[in-house]
Simulated assay, not measured.
Amino acid sequence: MTPLLSVIIPARNEATALPLLLADLAPLRAAGAELIVVDGGSSDATCALAAAQADKVLETSAGRALQMNAGAAVARAEYLWFVHADTRVSAASIRHLLATLAERPIWGRFDVRLSGSGLALRLIGTMINLRSRLTGVATGDQAIFVAREPFEALGGYADIPLMEDIELSGRLKKRARPRCLRPPLSTSSRRWEHDGIWRTVLFMWRLRLAYYRGVSPDQLARQYHRGPPL
Results as ranks from 00 to 15, higher is better:
2 T>P: 03
7 V>F: 01
11 A>C: 06
13 N>H: 08
18 L>H: 01
21 L>S: 03
25 L>F: 02
25 L>S: 07
26 A>V: 00
28 L>E: 01
28 L>F: 04
29 R>G: 04
31 A>Q: 11
32 G>Y: 08
35 L>T: 02
35 L>D: 03
39 D>L: 04
39 D>A: 06
40 G>M: 10
43 S>R: 15
43 S>A: 15
44 D>G: 08
45 A>Y: 02
45 A>E: 15
47 C>L: 05
48 A>Y: 08
49 L>W: 05
53 Q>G: 07
53 Q>T: 01
54 A>F: 01
55 D>C: 01
56 K>C: 11
57 V>F: 00
64 R>V: 10
67 Q>M: 15
67 Q>C: 13
72 A>L: 06
72 A>T: 09
72 A>N: 01
73 A>Y: 01
75 A>H: 05
80 L>Q: 00
84 H>D: 15
93 S>L: 08
95 R>Q: 14
97 L>T: 11
100 T>C: 13
101 L>T: 12
103 E>G: 11
106 I>F: 05
106 I>C: 10
109 R>F: 14
109 R>T: 13
110 F>Y: 13
110 F>E: 00
116 G>I: 08
117 S>C: 10
118 G>A: 04
120 A>Q: 14
121 L>S: 06
124 I>N: 02
125 G>W: 10
130 L>C: 07
131 R>Q: 11
136 G>S: 07
139 T>A: 07
140 G>Q: 04
140 G>E: 00
141 D>P: 00
145 F>Y: 10
150 P>Y: 03
152 E>C: 10
155 G>C: 11
155 G>Y: 04
161 P>Y: 08
162 L>H: 06
169 S>W: 00
170 G>Y: 02
175 R>W: 08
176 A>P: 09
177 R>G: 06
180 C>Y: 07
181 L>T: 10
182 R>M: 09
183 P>E: 07
183 P>G: 08
183 P>T: 07
184 P>W: 09
184 P>A: 11
184 P>F: 13
188 S>Q: 05
189 S>H: 13
192 W>Y: 15
194 H>E: 14
196 G>S: 09
199 R>D: 06
205 W>D: 11
205 W>R: 15
208 R>H: 14
212 Y>L: 12
215 V>Q: 09
215 V>E: 15
216 S>R: 09
219 Q>G: 03
222 R>L: 12
223 Q>A: 13
227 G>Y: 02
228 P>F: 03
228 P>W: 05
229 P>D: 12
